[in-house]
Each structure stands twice: as structure tokens, then as C-alpha cells.
């Protein structure tokens, strides 16, 4: 009974997901097939990855609007600079380089937020502009494509019949989940997000913790960029622009509070799946795909309004 009470919010989200799923199965019989379920999972897996990173920033009381540009920049860098040859060694080297670059972008965000005290949404927007600008400068108008088949396997392959992005997303969730619940870094992230001053009085290095959250978000976005590039088999500077808001929407539905310190990774999974089902459902009902951007906007607002933790009136 106590357990149910404590996890009431998560359970209600889960039941919304189930109801939506059942509705879609009834409306369209082909929806319940294994192929389609796998497809839904595959589509949601990238949003889920990015949302996990953004959730870390939200847990420390911030936001990361730069993820889309990070994906674009890393994608371009991989296509134009890092993938020198066609061997596996080159690819591994390239991926490592990408992760370093994306960590640097995250570090820039973290520096602006922690040390320069810029409001997170402004700092990460500014970095977003810079990163996307760099992506354009680096391409010189070219589009990179035709990567090696090994590289294409990363985002487009299957292992035991399951699409690789799903596996990567699951692994990432496991790692981030463990990090949040089983490491002192996780404790610090929640402590800083919940009450920054109390964390400081407890001897927690607040700036380092903020920095870490943004660096991790950057690395996760960079990794998502690799998977995305591999699946598209092409790299161009315009990609990824819709990722930030989808991920924010997923995290918001998943119960990650914009005030920080509240929410968990499992919620993000449910959030990302609900979001994917909504867009999937809209496609099934043959609604103009333009509406989907608006849907994420409405969802963000509704999710925040419903969340009792944030929607309280002043006083």
C-alpha cells in the first residue's frame, strides 16, 4: 500500500501509456504486431537517449537546449574530419573523438551556467547557435554520406532481431539509472537540484556537479548523434533541430520537474513512449505531420501544469 502511494505518479503515467497502447491496438489491428512494436521502440529510442541527458540537466535545476545542435555538429565532424579511413580502427577513433567534442560542448554549457551564472536556457541557446554555426562552417555546403557498412550497423543494424538503437538506449538507461541511484554523483545531482544552498552547506561542490550534468548531457547527445548519423547514413548541418523540444516534452511527461531534484529515469522511458505513441497515433489517423511540433508544445505545457510539484501558485 505504501509502495503504491509512493509511486502513484509513475503508476498513473504507466496506466496512461497502457490505455493509449490498447486504444491504438483497437483502432488499428496492425499496431499490436511485433514488427510495429519494435518500430515504435526504435523511433522512440533516440528521443529517449537525448531526453535522458536533458533529464540530468533538469534534475540539477537547468535545461539543455543545445542538444540538437550538438547532434548536428558531431554528425558533421564525424562525416568530414574524424572518419579518416574505412577501417574499424578509424571508426572507433572517430567515435571517441566525437564523444570528446560533445563533452566539450557540454562543458561550455556547464561553464556558462555554473561559473558565469547565465540562466540555463539562455546559455544553452547561445551555445546551440555557436555549435550549429560551426556545423554550417565546417560543411561548406556539402552533405556527407555513404559511410561504411560497419558504421551503418551502429544505427541501422539488428542484434537478435532487435534494432541496435533500442539496445543502445536500453544500455544508456541502465548506466544513467545506476549512476543516479547507486553513485555519489547521483546523490549530488539530486541534492543540488532539490536545494542548492543546502547542498553547498553540506560540502557538496555545486559547480562541479552542475558541470558534470551538462557534460553528461553533451556526451549523450553526441552519442545519439552518432547513432542518428549512422541510421540516416548521411550528415548535414540541418539535422536534429527538433530533438531538444521532443526530449524536453518526453522528460516533462515523465515527471522530471523543471524546479530540479525530482523525477527518475523510468519516468523518462514512459514519457518518451507516450510521446512516440502520440505522434505514431497522429500518423495512423493521417494528421498533417506539421501538427506534431505543435503537439509537443501542447504536451510540454500540459505536463507542467499537471505536475503538482511545479504548478503551485506563489505562496
Amino acid at each position: 500500500m505504501q509502495w503504491i502511494k509512493k509511486h502513484l505518479a509513475t503508476l498513473s503515467r504507466l496506466s496512461i501509456l497502457l490505455v493509449m497502447f490498447l486504444l491504438l491496438v483497437i483502432v488499428s489491428p496492425s499496431f499490436g504486431t511485433m514488427t510495429n512494436i519494435l518500430n515504435v521502440l526504435r523511433v522512440s529510442s533516440l528521443t529517449l537517449m537525448v531526453a535522458t541527458g536533458i533529464a540530468l540537466c533538469m534534475l540539477v535545476g537547468g535545461i539543455d537546449l543545445s542538444v540538437g545542435a550538438t547532434i548536428a555538429l558531431t554528425s558533421i565532424l564525424f562525416g568530414s574530419r574524424f572518419q579518416l579511413g574505412h577501417g574499424i580502427g578509424d571508426m572507433v577513433f572517430g567515435i571517441a573523438g566525437i564523444l570528446v567534442v560533445s563533452a566539450l560542448i557540454g562543458a561550455c554549457n556547464g561553464f556558462c551556467v555554473a561559473w558565469l551564472r547565465i540562466p540555463p536556457f539562455l546559455a544553452t541557446y547561445g551555445i546551440q547557435q555557436i555549435a550549429r554555426g560551426l556545423a554550417y562552417v565546417l560543411t561548406n555546403g556539402l552533405v556527407y554520406s555513404n559511410f561504411t557498412s560497419t558504421f551503418q550497423f551502429i544505427g541501422g543494424g539488428r542484434i537478435l532481431g532487435i534494432h541496435t538503437p533500442i539496445i543502445f538506449a536500453a544500455l544508456l538507461l541502465l548506466i544513467v539509472g545506476l549512476m543516479l541511484n547507486k553513485t555519489t554523483l547521483g546523490r549530488r545531482i539530486y541534492a543540488v537540484g532539490s536545494n542548492r544552498e543546502a547542498a553547498r552547506y553540506s560540502g557538496i561542490n555545486v559547480n562541479a556537479t552542475l558541470m558534470m550534468a551538462y557534460i553528461l548531457s553533451g556526451i549523450i547527445a553526441g552519442f545519439a548523434g552518432i547513432v542518428y548519423t549512422s541510421r540516416l547514413n548521411c550528415a548535414e548541418p540541418t539535422i536534429g533541430s527538433e530533438f531538444a523540444q521532443e526530449a524536453i516534452a518526453a522528460a516533462a511527461i515523465g515527471g522530471i520537474s523543471f524546479k530540479g531534484g525530482h523525477g527518475n529515469v523510468f519516468g523518462v522511458v514512459v514519457g518518451a513512449l507516450i510521446l512516440t505513441l502520440i505522434t505514431n497515433g497522429m500518423t495512423l489517423l493521417s494528421i498533417d505531420s506539421n501538427w506534431q511540433v505543435g503537439a509537443t508544445g501542447v504536451i510540454i505545457i500540459l505536463a507542467v501544469l499537471i505536475d503538482r510539484n511545479t504548478a503551485k501558485k506563489k505562496h
Binding site: 555519489t184 546523490r187 549530488r188 539530486y190 541534492a191 532539490s194 536545494n195 544552498e197 543546502a198 547542498a199 553547498r200 552547506y201 553540506s202 560540502g203 557538496i204 531534484g261 525530482h262 510539484n309
Partner: peptide, 23 residues
């Protein structure tokens, strides 16, 4: 203001100051 992370459990609040020494 300065002592507690109110929306976190008692368990984690107690270890906040000793994260480095306890773990």
C-alpha cells in the same frame, strides 16, 4: 533554506554531508 533537501527522502538527506567519507 540551508539544511535540507525537502523533497528527498530522510535516508539520502542524512548522507549528503558525508558522501565522500561514507562512500
Amino acid at each position: 533554506e540551508f539544511g535540507l533537501a525537502l523533497n528527498l527522502p530522510i535516508r539520502t538527506n542524512i548522507t549528503h554531508a558525508g558522501l565522500k567519507t561514507i562512500f
